[in-house]
Design a protein around this nucleic acid. Sequence first.
DNA 1: ACAAAAGTTGACCAAAGTGTCAACTTTACA
DNA 2: TGTAAAGTTGACACTTTGGTCAACTTTTGT
Lengths: 210, 210
Amino acid sequence: MAKARDQEERISERNRRIILKAGIEIFARKGFDGTRIAEIAEASGLPKANVYYYFSSKEEIYRAIIEHLITGWDNALKFISPEREPAEAFRLYIKAKLDYARKNGAESRLFASEIIQGARFLTKKDRDHMRRVTDRHVTVVDGWIASGKLLPVDARHLFIMLWASTQFYAEFEPVAADGLGKSRLKVDDYEAAATAISETILRGILPAAG
Amino acid sequence: MAKARDQEERISERNRRIILKAGIEIFARKGFDGTRIAEIAEASGLPKANVYYYFSSKEEIYRAIIEHLITGWDNALKFISPEREPAEAFRLYIKAKLDYARKNGAESRLFASEIIQGARFLTKKDRDHMRRVTDRHVTVVDGWIASGKLLPVDARHLFIMLWASTQFYAEFEPVAADGLGKSRLKVDDYEAAATAISETILRGILPAAG
DNA sequence: ACAAAAGTTGACCAAAGTGTCAACTTTACA
DNA sequence: TGTAAAGTTGACACTTTGGTCAACTTTTGT
């Protein structure tokens, strides 16, 4: 029965997962200070005191969520690789970023709010990691520029353009929906976004006849 | 002395202005729920109870700030005009957006936070206004496309790209600074951003030899 | 079957924060 | 100069919220 037990999620793992999932939704909507532990408890189907059995404080729940988001922060960057042609690399990157934004709206908004308000829960280690990852991929892009595969463009500003354009749809959904004349964004809105962003930015950075 | 009095700002106007200015800085950093009236009072140099003399509630201060921000929301769009050539229009637009972002960082972050958390303080009227203004400028861009002055691009997604790319620097300053390998963004970072965004996006949307 | 460990929970407490108010001071006006 | 209006403010009331705890129940392991 030990094997069955190992396969079944333990009570503590299940409850921690439920609490974090509820926390993501509510912190995304209401921010750290606007969120009540009682709300997280209610959404988790647990008594409030029980939440404190699994997490020592509200801040610990929030930090656990932030660390979880950081681990996946650079997933899409794997496409920016010297083994690929830049056109394909950027298309895949833009698509992956938009897919993440569409599928993880609450996470996107939570992380965005955290940054906008000063990134007070990001540690120096987090930021150093993000900086190193960025530097590594800037180097790949600079290599493409040096070999003539890309027009001369500031790679750092290019990445900012790409991050901003792709994250906007999930983060600023009310304005994105209004801007697109829609009440709510759907899969084809994200696909149209991938097309518009890819075509516009790729034409802007690839040599002619690219 | 009536004339002198008219010229001098009345006590109530001065205090309301000071309270709103303090409110912008603190709401931007801490969000609506994370901000304490006592903090706004202290930053204003007024006793807390006095803040309630001028504004009936914390929410009234916040709403007044949001309405103020809405009135200037579309200032930069004036450059998107049929009287201009698209290349010039977009360059001016991008520059104006970046200038606003650089000079009004706190306002940008406050407004961004508001949208990300669901735009709960924006009224239907506000959103209808923003939608109408956007529609009008989408029509101008569609006209340029129809006349061959622009490549076929979805104007709505193009505006989203432009908004996202230009606002990012002020809104996500910690990540923008890290991405640029800087500790803090300066005027020349914004100028480099204007160059990168203009060159990349304009090459992406203007017919060849543009 | 029993004991230990893990999990649950209603009630509670201390601190924080919004907002109020009566009494006062300052300004404006006739 | 005197009065009315505007502005100021320390103390307070009330509500909310993060977090605690003792006592209980359930699960796990021997």
